[in-house]
């Protein structure tokens, strides 16, 4: 994985129109290193975002006033869309329907515009009015802290695990790192295990044209852009994984597929949005899974000390805390 500024220059700039590219390339290194998002909005200033701030970008680099910033035109957006789709918008219809396009390197471009709806479902976005380049940065090691709590002593079996956090809390990063650790095999596990990732929104593996761009381990198979419920069943039928990893359970079909997988002797690791056990128990779909104690470990994350802050690890059936962070304990 390249470091921050290399990511931006080598992997993002080729997808920006020359006018905008030249502005980004001349930015100081320390700014390039921390940039997380580049925002292009029609008739509005070009903006950069990072965890603790934002900036307007103009001819002379970062500018203080919007009047001095580079204003994005319809032509800029059209050209950018052509560049990110590799001149092949027709090949990205499914991505356009989902509202994002993944770039090589696992970076993602979110689309804003007019949604064309057919039979109550978004068919595609037309008249694109905004593009958001989100830089993918793999954070390795987040799973190392929790993995010892997820492995059964003696047998080495991995417990069915549910990761819970509010949005931007680091769930996907944790799932990706767990996939990598379990697949490659780390000390506590001994040999690696076959992992199947059902990546409905291409966020876990950051796949580009089906090929994972982020490290998810050597024994990992990825079903990219595949609906979770269908993907889990496909995995069970044909790819014989020991562990299936998927994110954001929410639909009844997902729960049915998870239940099926659990009863097939496959370990499930998944995530849901939420900040506490009480909160997620109010969601009927998730509550059904918890009431049946399918998940043996519950991991709670927050953004208290930055995304991916580990708050607690709870034993699923009896609700016993296995780990509590110091900030939580205080």
């Amino acid at each position: 994985m390249l470091n921050g500024h290399h990511n931006l220059i080598k992997e993002i700039c080729p997808f920006l129109p020359p006018r905008i590219r030249s502005l980004v390339e001349t930015l100081p290194l320390d700014l390039l290193k921390k940039v997380e998002e580049i925002r292009l909005r029609h008739s509005r200033p070009l903006m950069l975002h990072w965890t603790s701030g934002e900036a307007f970008l103009g001819k002379n680099g970062v500018v203080g006033r919007t009047e001095d910033a580079c204003m994005i035109s319809g032509e800029d957006l059209e050209k950018t869309l052509e560049l990110i789709s590799n001149h092949s918008l027709y090949a990205f219809e499914e991505e356009l329907r989902q509202g994002y396009i993944t770039l090589p390197g696992g970076h993602r471009v979110g689309l804003a515009g007019r949604a064309v709806v057919e039979s109550g479902k978004v068919k595609l976005f037309s008249n694109i009015s905004g593009l958001n380049f989100r830089l993918a940065r793999q954070v390795k090691g987040t799973g190392e802290k929790v993995l010892p709590f997820l492995v059964e002593r003696g047998s080495g079996r991995i417990f069915h695990t549910l990761i819970i956090s509010p949005p931007q809390g680091g769930k996907t990063t944790m799932l990706r790192d767990l996939a990598r650790l379990i697949s490659d095999g780390v000390g506590i596990l001994g040999q690696g295990q076959k992992v199947g990732v059902v990546d409905e929104r291409s966020e876990i593996a950051g796949s580009y044209r089906g090929v994972p761009q982020l490290e998810v381990g050597i024994r990992t198979d990825v079903l990219d852009a595949c609906p979770k419920a269908e993907g889990i069943m496909l995995m069970l039928r044909s790819l014989s994984p020991r562990v299936i990893i998927t994110d954001e359970l929410g639909r009844e079909a997902d729960v049915a597929a998870v239940t099926e997988a659990i009863h097939c002797g496959v370990t499930m690791i998944s995530s849901v949005h939420g900040s506490s056990l009480e909160e997620i128990c109010r969601r009927p779909v998730v509550a059904a899974l918890l009431q049946n104690s399918y998940f043996e470990r519950l991991i709670f994350l927050s953004s208290a000390k930055g995304p991916g802050t580990l708050e607690t690890i709870v034993e699923g059936e009896r609700g016993l805390p296995l780990f509590t962070s110091q900030s939580k304990g205080e």
Partner: peptide
């Protein structure tokens, strides 16, 4: 023609 519109347009 190239690269503009969806599959049907193309």
């Amino acid at each position: 023609i190239w690269g503009r519109g969806d599959k049907n347009d193309q």
